[in-house]
Amino acid sequence: MAARTVIGTGKEFTIGKIVCLARNYSEHARELGNETPTAPVLFMKPASAVIGDGEAVRIPLYSDECHYEVELAVLIGSRASRISPQQAMACVAGYGVAIDMTLRDVQNNLKSKGLPWEIAKGFDTSCPLSDFVPPDAVEDPHNLTLRLSVNGEARQNGNSSDMIHRVPQIIAYISDIFTLEPGDVILTGTPAGVGRVRAGDSMEAEIPGVNRLRIPVQ
């Protein structure tokens, strides 16, 4: 089972469910031709999707178009059910870096048929995830730079200030639907600049002051 530490605290969490936001940056929504949503759009990844720094993303044989999406990850440290935004930040155990790997051809095909697209998002190795820093190490989670490069070439360079729905509202919204448990992770969306990777590529994702991931692609 995947586990991650909160750096400097001695705490380790077994990863539970991974709740993800789609279209939480307006420029990213526009680059994919999607409307900007008024409420959070949620999907999930299983814990079995998680890999760590240096481990490889393996593109499934059923896809020819695998995309990267760098994201701020929020680790839940205490049970949260139907809580308010004012209560939400007390549930945060840490912040990390994630890459939401997406099989764009598979996703678009399923969306066109009105079908769920978990197989485009939740496949094995689809969630590279760093260890976490404690909340007090991050002055403002809504003012963080998110970067991703492929083979040393910059592809994404955004800021979490552009999130449509912010962390307290996201946690509160999710907690009205799913009870959040310690070890659950929320992926908060990606800025513009997503694109394709191929076998043999190497990705580096970084949120300065939080963490970094170096991930090869197979």
Rank of each mutant, 00 (worst) to 15 (best):
D136K: 10
I177N: 00
R155T: 14
A154F: 06
D131W: 08
G158C: 00
E153G: 11
G152H: 09
L146A: 04
I174R: 01
S175E: 15
D162L: 14
G158S: 07
D176Y: 12
I164L: 14
N159R: 13
I170F: 07
M163F: 09
P141C: 09
F132H: 09
R147M: 02
I171C: 03
S149P: 00
L146F: 14
N143S: 14
N143T: 14
E139L: 01
M163P: 08
P168Q: 02
V138N: 13
G152I: 07
V167T: 15
E139V: 15
D140V: 05
S175D: 15
I170S: 02
N157A: 01
V167A: 04
V150A: 03
D176R: 12
S161K: 14
F132S: 07
S161V: 13
N143L: 01
E139M: 08
P134S: 08
L144F: 01
L148R: 09
R166P: 11
D136L: 11
T145H: 04
I164W: 00
R147L: 06
N143K: 14
P135R: 00
A154H: 12
T145C: 04
T145W: 03
Q169H: 15
D162S: 15
D176P: 03
S149M: 08
L146V: 05
S175A: 13
Y173G: 15
S175T: 15
M163Q: 12
E153S: 12
S160I: 06
I177W: 07
M163D: 11
H142D: 07
P168Y: 01
P128E: 08
R147F: 10
I171L: 01
D176Q: 15
D136F: 08
H142K: 11
I174E: 01
A172N: 12
I164G: 05
P128N: 00
H142M: 08
S160P: 10
F132C: 00
A137T: 04
N151S: 00
N151E: 13
G152R: 02
L144R: 10
F132Q: 04
P168A: 02
N157G: 02
A172H: 01
V133S: 06
S130M: 09
I164V: 07
R166N: 13
A137L: 01
I170T: 08
S161T: 14
N159W: 04
L129R: 06
L148A: 11
V133W: 13
S130R: 05
H165M: 03
A154L: 12
M163C: 06
T145P: 03
L144D: 13
Q156C: 10
N159D: 14
L129P: 06
P128I: 14
Q169L: 02
Y173V: 04
L129S: 09
A154M: 10
P135K: 09
A137P: 01
